[in-house]
Amino acid sequence: MNVTIRSRNKKKYREWVLWLLLLPSLMGMLIFYLLPFFLSMYYAMIDNVVSRRFVGLQNFIDTFRNLSFQRALKNTAFFILVGVPLNLICSFIIASLLKKMTKLKGFFGLIFLIPMIIPAGAVVFVWKSIFDVNGILNWVLYSVGLPMKNWLESEWVLGIVIIIFLWKNIGIGMILFWTGLNRIPKTYYEVARVEGGSAMRQFFNITLVYIMPTGFVAALLSIINSFKIFKEVFLLFGNYPSEWVYLLQHYMNNQFLAANAQKLSASAGIISAFIVSVLFFFFRSQRKLSEHFS
């Protein structure tokens, strides 16, 4: 009898300790992230900072109808839908290539990580020199005889931004996929080979399945970093770039400079709603897939 009570107390004590370890982070999150988020939602529901009249969802509707916002949404969606999968695929390919190498793996792996740590402001000049009107790309085209173009102001500018994004973020995806690939026990591959499966089937049935959790983490990190590409774009183009690279963050930044807290918070709210729904779908599908395959 005494033993059970003591062990139950010990269990409760253990739970307590765990909660205590979690507490600082929870408090910090609450004060510095959740509270400000709700405050900005409150800003989104009033009409004016001075005369705080409650208008409900009017700001959100106005933002949705806003032509500039729609344009920004289209551009950002295109960028994320093309850039993130491309990033994942490229880093996966490089990780699997690296796995096949026998020596100098670590060295090459680390080289790909270096672009991630270089500050944006430092490399923007180099990008400008390459893609500008009198830049290297145009010089190459001119030497070969092809027509030149102002790449930074043409409709290809999102492609340039995707190249910059890939350059910066292949490293971290590669590291994650590398660890993931190494975690798959070699025995599975042996079994598949013995059973006579082709390389394709091996890939689809084993690699893809077991890389899923790592892929999920890499995808999330990619999405976070795709929001951060705004810094490079801002340094390259300023507050009002050409209409093909006008992103959501440009819209929000300009509203910020125009001291319009309502539109800023309303657009932030809409973005959050989008992210929540996408993540929900992500989690659901991940759970379903892992149930299906295990």
Partner: peptide
């Protein structure tokens, strides 16, 4: 850049600015 391209681009940029 030709005048048409320039005009079209300036038009779009100013519209984005005004509509914000």
């Amino acid at each position: 850049q030709t005048a048409e391209q320039t005009a079209a681009r300036i038009q779009t940029k100013t519209e984005i600015y005004l509509n914000e």
